[in-house]
Design a binder for these strands. Structure first.
Lengths: 217, 217, 217, 217
DNA sequence: TAATAATCGAGACGGTACGTCACGTCTTGGA
DNA sequence: TCCAAGACGTGACGTACCGTCTCGATTATTA
């Protein structure tokens, strides 16, 4: 949990004495950070540049965020909460997964890719950020997969002992791998292959077990 | 391909004029870099520290490597070439994959993890390094998977149209995901689950297609 | 005029926003620079050494002075302003000039010599410094000569068309020449010879003109 | 005495064993040095640049000259010996001095100025070079003045106790002063003023002494 | 209506590392 | 013995950001 989140969540119940936090500055900082990120890349995203662009003092930034990465993370989570939150039931495991994977892959192939790569890189160097990153963005993604598999289990499409954790690894692992290593395209074909393989795995687990049982008779 | 690799590969055929490169310095630089990396972490791995520890000038380092990451990469590839090169045929797809995945996962859970994480992070910020990293370490890993699947195809374990590329993504994607995100352990259970799922996927592709054909009769 | 001078002269009227300049650091920098200069010579006077000795960051030095030479110049002008400002009227041109030249020559023959030589050398390589050097130290020296000759003109010792500029060149030129070239000693004899010759020149200008007029009758 | 001078003076009597010094390289080095000096200024004149431009190894330069300044000095003295050596007797002290001072001032105001300034600056930092500079270029200049005054003494223009050393200081001091400090132009007016003052001084020394003797009667 | 308290901008500060430059020395093969 | 080529250790450069620290000014709550 970032300092910013902390301050925000507390601001409701206890209006502390002194000058309140400037919403204007907060907005300017986040916008400036994202602007620099989009235009000049993550390498150019440093506190001094953000402060200069936002017309804000460095101190103000350090007061609310531990590093530039946290600013980006805040922008991203805010963005995700506004648009996502919906994993529509398409009526089948494959349909649900496609509805999840295809937009994800498409976004990462476009402008979301560089941002995501940068945050993951940052997480490797900064344990505090890794924690925040994992428990906000990443956890939300994995939860979606768990929900979809839960629905598939209720439908009887996959056995109840299907490993949702491993399934989430199978969905996001290869995506991350291609995103970071760049050995293959993040395109529709990949999305379909990914979903097909995952569905096959989850179902085959069942069917093969069934065939094994039949063979045992 | 790094400058160093280039110089090395040419050194055989053309003993150019001028003082030859100091093998002593090269060794000291690589060793110092790895020593700092193991003891103080990647964050402490900077050119000045390496130069100081190796008793070498910064210029000498910059002459042969573009950045500290390239030094680590060179050490790692040299290390890999000396110990690997062998993907023993265990007689079955599952056996081969386990023989590949288990040591990999074990190494990444131990001291190889932090180094790998750092290099991947570095690759996100430096396109030149990303290129080198992808075409050396990463490409070698993927090639191993392709070889294993090739053997399985010859054995008749998996169909000839099995997608080796996707299989490699399935093997290394989840490993990378867990390594970088840290949401799950890189342990034996994970290794088995990973191999089982991959084998099931590759085989189910065949069997399900077969059942679909039978059903069509 | 250095940045430092500029900031200083403005500091009275406008207490600008932000943390004010550290007088402590300024003092430490100047003192350290002079200390290194006296002990190890101008060749050893570099920004890193000054910063280290003063316990100050290099950036702080670069913020206020363009180079080490400007620091020395500031120290020297401050020193000169505190002790000089006085060109006592000795009652005669020769007396005034001796009162000016003898201490100057004595100082340059002692510890002021190396410093002065170094600054002049620096001025040849750095036009910005040359400008500062000329308009501060050098201009003050020349002005003193002009004042002395002005007094001599009022006394009737020298004609009103006596060239004060050339006289200043005659005073400081030979001093500089001996200082830089080292072909002759900067001693009392030299000082007397210098003053005698200058006085003779200035007066002879008058007398010879007079004799020429008499001869014309 | 430079290494080059040493080698040169010895080369006549003892043709040492081994490959002889390359006259081609020597010429290329001196020419390259002067070319860089004229085009890019003394600040750009470093051994690496000269070596690169001359197509010569750095070692070859260091073998024959202690520093770049010595190369320039060698070029300058060679140049001076070829054109000078002649101080024509114009029949009068003033004529002789003008014939000496006017070309000198003209040359220093033109392209000789920067070179001279740089060498003088260099001499302040390098005692070995100062020694060479003083005993070659500078000494030659002073000797010329001594010769001219010697002639004037024989002519009876100036007394035999006229101080030739001080006269040389009076000629070259102000020139050097203006050259280095840049407070005044090095033009014809200055040359005439300089010569007039020097002649007046030398002669007034006599006449004033005479008048003092008359007054004493 | 003050006093108190936190925030804000500006910007100076001590640090650390950067990547570059030139130094003067060395080690090759070849002339 | 000299030469070109060029690698080497050394030392300093000037710059970029870091995260912290004063400043005066502003804007709230609390007394």
């Amino acid at each position: 949990m970032t300092n910013a989140d902390f301050a925000e969540s507390n601001s409701v119940q206890k209006p502390r004495a002194g000058r309140p936090r400037s919403a204007e500055s907060r907005r300017a900082i986040i916008q400036s950070a994202m602007h620099i990120l989009q235009n000049d890349g993550y390498a150019a995203l440093n506190i001094e540049a953000i402060a200069a662009k936002a017309g804000v003092s460095k101190q103000t930034i350090y007061r609310w965020w531990p590093s530039a990465a946290f600013i980006v993370l805040e922008a991203l989570t805010a963005d995700m909460q506004s648009q996502d939150g919906l994993t529509p039931d398409m009526g089948s495991l494959k349909g649900d997964l496609l509805e999840l994977v295809r937009p994800t892959v498409r976004a990462l192939a476009a402008k979301r890719g560089p941002v995501f790569k940068a945050l993951i890189a940052e997480a490797q160097a900064d344990p505090r950020f890794a924690e925040s990153f994992r428990t906000s963005l990443m956890a939300a993604h994995r939860e979606t997969v768990r929900a979809i598999i839960g629905r598939a289990q209720l439908r009887g499409e996959v056995p109840f002992d299907a490993d949702a954790e491993l399934a989430a690894d199978f969905i996001y692992g290869p995506i991350l791998y291609r995103l970071l290593n760049g050995h293959g395209a993040l395109d529709e074909t990949f999305a379909y292959g990914l979903v097909d393989a995952t569905v096959l795995t989850l179902k085959a687990h069942d069917q093969l077990a069934q065939r094994a049982a039949e063979a045992a008779e």
